[in-house]
Design a protein around this nucleic acid. Sequence first.
DNA 1: CATTTCACCTGGTGGC
DNA 2: TGCCACCAGGTGAAAT
Length: 282
Amino acid sequence: MPELPEVETIARGVHERLRGDRIVEAWFSRRREPFKTPLARQAKGLEGRAILAVHRTGKHIVCELSPADGSPMAGLQAKPSAQWIVHLGMTGRLLVTTPDAPVAPHTHARLSLTSGRELRFVDPRRFGRLEFRELSLRAGFRAPGADPMEVTAAEFARLFRGRKLAIKAALLNQKLLSGVGNIYADESLFRAGIRPRRQSGRLTRAELEALLLALREVLEHAIRLGGSSVSDYVDADGVRGFFQLEHCVYQRTGLPCRHCKALIRRILVAGRGTHYCPRCQR
DNA sequence: CATTTCACCTGGTGGC
DNA sequence: TGCCACCAGGTGAAAT
């Protein structure tokens, strides 16, 4: 489900609710191996640590954790000594609940907290990834590509220089840009007036500038509306987003373009359903 | 190397 | 109602 705006919404929600809370016990579903970090090590690593902050990088949610309870420097002013890194895949959810809330099917992790609440990871398709990282052993997690909200126009243009792949495929490549997925690739290309199959290396400077601007506007607007709930996305409180109501092309195949009334088309680019307006996008 | 295709999963939808 | 094909917000390994 989740692209940058959905992940940002969830990370902010978890941050606001759980900052300063402490993990008492971590439970993992046995049948959910393989996570990135083996379950036993992950559970042992998490227990006793306070959640200092939660933020997004790319499509990953990073929980910054204090040293374990009992060790010196375990307080809330501590510097992070470990991270819990959550990638939601296609169908992952991260939910803050009360302990008595019904446990959804496909719940694969439950962290019980000092406050009495729980942080739950639910993931029907099991494409999500969980990783525990000890910062004394490894550097903090960083998404591999540039963040679309922070990249400069020059850096953005450089990402595509000399590349032959379609601009849509390039936007989806997380090693180039981190955080853009199928919805926001289609929506930003529409807003910039660019066909998804255009060769990325052949876009003009003006088109690249328009694309970066469109991308930022679309992502910011989507964050303000709490993300897109296409089928089952919800935030950390289980609340749906509203940006799906603003989509111009995504999943609007055969419907009239909101701008010019031409019928929206669906094609396959990089193996993904791709939606565009044949008149507005060139 | 750059790029494309496919496998990994479950569940929902729409046609027959 | 059932069965089946197809589709899905993501990614990384394998193939080209």
